[in-house]
């Protein structure tokens, strides 16, 4: 297990370096003046220009520039925004909010996704299954931002059940609706994945053998069908944690949640490229770590992987 972990970590290092390099390369090494890019095309003073050049070490060779960027990223020295705020401080405030939102979304999609998926899979071809299948297709087809607006409008404004937007403190209760919107598409995927997996395992040879041993139906379902079906689902959920952090950009914009996505959204709107690059860099770290966690989970759940 330990050697497996070390192997996976060793494999993730080049991914992390590659992804940050990609981001950095896209922003600083493509044709056009990088300072121009950093300023978002706005006119700026010579002082700002010089400060930016110094901050991003643009006077130095590319590899040195990138190395320093990586160092800054890892030491959480993310520079300042145009308005003079520390990006790291802004992230420090926003990150817990988004983390809360993502965890809530993960819980919603995990719990409901697995329950619906298992029921649909066990009753393949019945009305519940068909309804769930069609509903999941619709959820995948409707863009998240449309779903967000509709739910905000119906539940928040018309029915007045919850506040349509989130306050600065972003409590768990306030975050429920945005989390639902954020997790809904993934929920649909979880349902479909669970269903397929249950159907596959239901007809597996080892399930028939378990039945032949004299186990009760209940035990066959929980110990043999469910346990095995959950392996791909849990893996998906883990990988999705990273995806949710990225998806938050839309949801947080709609519900005015003061999270990382909102920060990014605002930075894009204002053309604050330095903030964008910094935030994306941090998100890449989150993805890479999430991937590592998934690998560990996978190995934990499936003994065949552990010893491979």
């Amino acid at each position: 297990m330990l050697s497996f972990m070390l192997k996976r970590i060793a494999q993730l290092i080049p991914v992390f370096i590659g992804a940050t390099l990609l981001v950095y390369f896209l922003v600083f090494a493509t044709p056009g003046n990088p300072i121009e890019a950093l300023s978002g095309g706005k006119p700026m003073s010579d002082a700002t220009r010089a400060a930016l050049e110094a901050q991003y070490n643009l006077d130095k060779p590319f590899w040195v520039q990138y190395g320093l960027y990586l160092k800054n990223l890892l030491t959480f020295d993310l520079g300042t925004s145009f308005s003079g705020q520390e990006v790291s401080a802004m992230l420090g405030r926003a990150f817990p909010v988004t983390a809360r939102l993502a965890i809530l979304a993960l819980l919603i999609e995990g719990i409901f996704g697995i329950i619906f998926g298992v029921i649909a899979g066990m009753r393949k071809g019945k009305w519940f299954d068909s309804t769930i299948l069609i509903a999941s297709l619709i959820v995948i087809a409707v863009p998240t931002f449309v779903l967000g607006f509709v739910l905000q409008f119906v539940v928040g404004v018309k029915l007045d059940l919850v506040k349509p937007t989130v306050s600065g403190s972003a409590t768990w209760g306030e975050l429920f609706l945005p989390a639902l919107v954020l997790g809904l598409v993934s929920l649909a995927y979880v349902v479909r994945l669970t269903r397929t997996s249950v159907i596959e395992n239901k007809s597996a040879d080892f399930v028939r053998t378990a039945t032949a041993k004299g186990l009760s139906r209940r035990r066959v379902i929980t110990v043999h069908i469910l346990r095995n079906s959950l392996i791909p689902v849990v893996t998906f959920l883990g990988a999705d944690l990273g995806g949710l952090m990225g998806g938050a950009i839309v949801t947080e914009g709609i519900f005015n949640v003061p999270g990382v996505g909102h920060l990014l959204y605002q930075a894009i709107q204002k053309g604050e490229t330095p903030t964008v690059v910094a935030v994306v860099g941090v998100l890449v770290i989150v993805f890479v770590v999430a991937n590592l966690v998934v690998d560990m989970l996978y190995a934990l759940l499936d003994p065949r992987i552990r010893y491979a």
Binding site: F206, V207, A212, R304
Partner: peptide
């Protein structure tokens, strides 16, 4: 009791 045919697929791989 039953002894099934294919030993590769008849034991649950995760237990």
């Amino acid at each position: 009791g039953m002894v099934p045919q294919d030993p590769m697929s008849n034991l649950n791989p995760v237990w």
